[in-house]
Amino acid sequence: MSQPTKGFSRRAFLRGSGVAAAASSVTSTQSASAAIVPVPIIAGETQVSLTVNGQKKTVTVEPRTTLLDTLRYQLNLTGAKPVSSDGSSGASTVLVDGKPVMASTTLTVAVSGKSISTCEGLKDGDIPKAFVSNDAQQCGFCTPGFVVAVKAFLNQHPDATEEQIRAGLNGNICRCGTYANVLQAVIALVKGNQNG
């Protein structure tokens, strides 16, 4: 149980952090605790509001309901796929506030109020067209996850090199092994030429 001996400053850190704010509010007014709204503990079913592909939705879920199950079984958006329960396949990739996350390892209650984009929301964009033009799918089961991952990747790296594309899409697995064509599709998108 050692205190940091060198090079750390709690004072500087605490300034502006939640710790200092909470501590001062408690000490400044004795009745502060009465004004604090307790954190709701959710047990059993609850209503959660989300924005999915630009539309406001309200769903009834249990704490254990994953975002993937909510999308597929309540909102009828079956693009994101249940391939791996631990998210290692990347097939359930969706964007939450623009960030690529695995819907299979995300709780619906944890994304309350956030904005979700699924591959269905990208259907009119360039990415599906580039996948079709470059024949970047075989059985197609991994494709929705790939499409969303490519969207997230290109948002961050619009001028990616081939090496960066390979590394960036490492989180998505294709059992058919159609990686070469996915790579071509993304290269075409980077070049702004979706017909390859």
Binding site: A22, A43, R64
Partner: peptide, 30 residues
């Protein structure tokens, strides 16, 4: 199934984790 809570401060978080009668875990990325 489990109980779920989303605290706004560190203090709220440790208060929620403190209940010795419950097995509580911390979720961040998941």
């Amino acid at each position: 199934n489990f109980e779920y809570a989303q605290p706004r401060t560190e203090q709220e978080a440790v208060a929620l984790l403190a209940d010795q009668s419950k097995h509580s875990v911390v979720l961040a990325g998941g």
